[in-house]
């Protein structure tokens, strides 16, 4: 059997067992998800308003500055160099409910997301989440992982494509953890910046309704909307418990 076939078989078996592990969640966890699903289905986030492109950009700039005041302090505490602690946030006129951290220091927010939220606190959470990805160097980690996978694939004779696939699968399984970690940091940042966590939570409620999944499979890059909402509630409870 060739190395390529072996690796595909190994990934399949790995995926199967990981899927099994995810499916066999505890009864308590399942009950929490049922309660949260009932909450998501029976509650509505406040009605949003469509913003003009200029308004959306102004809003992003204003929130970015307010959030940045807190992040600056974190950078000093964590001894992060000043050049690694600056970001540019820009709005792209696209309808998706999306935002992402990009390159070394860029944050892109789709205008569709800004149009579908009603509170500044929700947008502050999104911006803080993307900043957290940069602070934790997640973008570079993903890029490097892909590169290492491609090189390993080429060196072992399985081909750069197979190597990249393996790297991508491993990274995606880590990616969900990165998202939760970024949410954790975002909660700290926006609370410090004076935003209301209860209002910020609406962005996750909207996502849970859009997403519809109750759990993500091991090969998905983002946790399901319901899992993320559940994690957010736990983070907020922890945050309040430590104060």
């Amino acid at each position: 059997m060739s190395f390529k076939r072996c690796s595909v078989l190994a990934i399949t078996i790995f995926g199967f067992f990981m899927e099994l592990a995810v499916v066999s969640a505890s009864t308590e966890d399942i009950q929490k998800k049922i309660d949260l699903a009932n909450y998501v289905n029976n509650n509505q986030a406040p009605r949003p308003s469509i913003k003009l492109a200029a308004e959306a950009r102004e809003l992003v700039t204003e929130i970015h500055f307010r959030v940045f005041d807190v992040v600056k302090e974190i950078c000093i505490e964590e001894e992060i160099k000043a050049r690694d602690c600056t970001w540019s946030a820009r709005v792209e006129l696209l309808p998706g409910f999306q935002a992402f951290a990009f390159r070394a220091n860029e944050i892109v927010i789709h205008s569709g997301l800004i149009d579908k939220i009603s509170y500044d606190d929700e947008l502050a959470f999104v911006i803080a989440h993307e900043i957290a990805h940069h602070l934790y160097n997640h973008v570079a980690k993903k890029r490097n992982g892909m590169f290492v996978g491609a090189v390993l694939g080429a060196l072992t004779g399985a081909g750069a494509g197979t190597g990249a696939t393996i790297a991508s699968l491993v990274l995606q399984s880590k990616s969900s953890a990165m998202e939760i970690r970024a949410d954790e940091m975002a909660v700290k940042i926006i609370e410090e910046a004076g935003y209301d966590l209860a209002k910020a939570r609406f962005v996750l409620l909207r996502m849970a309704k859009l997403d519809g999944r109750s759990r993500a499979t091991i090969l998905e890059s983002h946790p399901a909307g319901l899992e993320r909402l559940l994690a957010f509630d736990q983070l907020v409870a922890q945050e309040r418990g430590t104060r």
Binding site: A25, I30, K33, I34, A45, A208, K209, D211, R213, R215
Partner: peptide
């Protein structure tokens, strides 16, 4: 307009959850 159904747990403990979009 859209309802997503996913199941949790195994065998007798299997529970299916439906989440609607809005």
């Amino acid at each position: 307009l859209k309802v997503t159904i996913q199941c949790e747990g195994k065998a007798e403990e299997k529970v299916c959850i439906a989440i609607s979009d809005s």
